[in-house]
Computed example of a mutant assay.
Amino acid sequence: MPRPLNPREIETFRAVLQTGTTTAAAQLLHTTQPSVSRLLAQMQAAAGLKLFDIHKGRLRPTPEAMELYATVQQHFLGRERIERQLAVLRQSGAGGLRIGCTPALGLSVLPPVVQRFAQRHPGVHLSLQTLGTLALREGLHNGHFDCVVSTMALATPDFDATVLHHSHAVCVMHPDHALATRAALQVQDLRGQLLLTLNADDDIFLQLQRTMQSHGIEPSATIETTTSANICRLAAQGLGVGVVNPYVASVFARDLCVLALHPLCAVEVVLAVPPRLALSERAETFVQLLREELAQLPAERV
């Protein structure tokens, strides 16, 4: 009566086909020749097929046996690939690492983190893409990133977000600017100034706009641009006063006067990951290095 084959029978069948004799198969399997012959007989009975015959004292596989062997080989080769892949994963983790971030963080906080990560994993391909927040959300939702780091809110029902660092926005201007002699700026100091701003959907801009409106403050004019780095470069040219996150301001600090602004505009570094997929070991390492880098920074600017 046919029955399902057990793993030991299949392994023995494969060894006999590989080596050509029951004696050689027994050596390969570290067992005895009678044990191999017994398992082959059991397998034939279970399969309900003639798999071998004896010709001039030698064991010969039937065509049915050869077709079955081809399928068995695919199974074992698949297992071997699994073992090889496990060895690779144990050594270096899954695939590459895909990080998405806002331009300000890609210019300021992330480079030293990438440098330390590359030292630990010299053979790993790392992709660091700097994009706007909307593109980062879409990329994470569509599986294009392992994690995303932003200075704008990222929490949605589609993924989890964690605040890694709290700080406050700062004012940047040319060192010769009339306001550069102050220890810090009040929002009233921006009255009548040429203001360098980000786009209207930026968190810092929205906070600043609300604060200025509540105090009845109007700038003389505004220059709107897409990145905090652009604001810093424009400020370094003496064009006006910009309000940016402190991370990017630190990159251009040699060319700028950087002052705290009151009332405070909150800035947060946010990490977002897909909620239904655990981080790889590489991604966990990267996040830990990022946490360590941020821990070295002031928690706030007052």
Rank of each mutant, 00 (worst) to 15 (best):
R14D: 11
R14W: 06
V16D: 12
L29I: 04
S37T: 13
L39A: 14
Q44A: 10
L49M: 07
D53F: 14
K56A: 15
M66T: 12
Y69G: 03
A70E: 15
T71A: 14
L77N: 11
R79G: 04
Q85I: 07
L89I: 11
A94T: 14
I99C: 03
I99Y: 05
V114M: 12
Q115C: 13
F117E: 09
Q119E: 10
H121T: 00
L126N: 03
T130R: 09
A135Y: 12
F145K: 01
V148D: 00
S150F: 03
S150D: 07
L154Q: 10
D158M: 10
T162R: 10
S167R: 07
D176A: 06
A183T: 11
A183N: 09
V187G: 02
G192T: 09
T197I: 05
L198G: 09
D202F: 13
I223F: 05
T225P: 07
C232W: 05
G238I: 08
L239K: 07
V241G: 02
V241L: 11
V241N: 04
V243C: 01
P246G: 15
V248S: 02
V251S: 04
A253F: 04
L259D: 02
V270R: 11
E281K: 08
A283R: 11
T285V: 01
F286G: 08
L289A: 06
E292H: 04
A299Q: 15
R301M: 15
